[in-house]
Design a protein around this nucleic acid. Structure first.
Lengths: 147, 147
DNA sequence: GATTAATATGAAAATAATCTGGATTAACGG
DNA sequence: CCGTTAATCCAGATTATTTTCATATTAATC
């Protein structure tokens, strides 16, 4: 299951191209996102960063600034779960994928297929019940493209 | 484009079955949701309810409680747009549908088709650019089904 | 390695959506 | 119409997120 996440060198290159400094908090956030396979909330990223770095705590505000910067730079993508906080994960090079969230325990698993019927069949095989989904499209409309 | 939204009689029946009282604020919220074809935010519902009812204002807290009750009763469904507030719309009987949100002006249109390639082609024809989408699944996992 | 200019960070306060508790009012069965 | 109970209003509490500003850090230059 090779996901081809961004490397540290690619990361540094992206930051430098955009005149952004390579700082310790930014490297820490990248490290956490690289070592986790599920999308994380701001608060989870904050906890994990500080868990292994007790000498100098990174502030939650810095986590917010850092993750939002990564989203702007397209290093990270934002995932919205219904009734849940926003979550963030590294952009994968290879494939577009989705998620299945347990309505009770909130566990998140990745879904690798991309056709809805196929996906729901597969989720049933995995033992999921009461399956529903949310699909939203985003784009720039005709009127806004003119400006 | 008949959407077969819930009728007032069906609405009353659902409330009564669930031992909920039929109150003026609840009827007002239903009226607003019935007369709007796009999902609305709590604050938009609040404004619209009070626009035509200047004698007695309905409090925003009541809008929150009412809409959340409707969601619990499956009269209303919650729609999450990325970078946006939660929005709410009446559950339609006939068809499952999705939305297209303009990234600039935040305008929301309904999308009636349900195959992703078809949908994106259709959106391109409508003049949308820079299209992306978010798809999430929800369900109860094997472990949680046991309890 | 030291100097410096500019940016990033930490800490705390501001903001904004949403929720809650208590007193008041309205719904509805009798 | 009355009494019981639930719903509403009002105000204030929460919580996620953003902003402000003084201080610390980065990275370019010497």
């Amino acid at each position: 299951m090779s996901h081809d996440k961004i490397t540290y060198d690619e990361f540094k290159e992206v930051l430098q191209k955009n005149s952004q400094r390579i700082t310790l908090p930014r490297l820490e956030v990248l490290r956490i996102l690289k070592s986790n396979h599920n999308p994380l909330t701001m608060s989870e990223i904050h906890d994990k960063v500080n868990l292994l770095h007790p000498k100098k705590k990174v502030d939650l505000a810095t986590i917010y600034r850092t993750v939002n910067l990564f989203v702007d730079l397209k290093i990270v993508s934002e995932v919205n779960f219904r009734d849940e906080f926003k979550r963030y994960e590294l952009v994968f090079d290879r494939h577009h994928h989705h998620h299945i969230v347990c309505k009770k325990c909130k566990k998140v698993e990745n879904v690798e297929l991309c056709l809805m019927n196929e996906i729901e069949k597969m989720l049933v095989k995995k033992g999921y019940k009461d399956i529903s989904h949310s699909l939203e499209f985003f784009g720039v409309c005709k009127e806004c493209s003119k400006n």
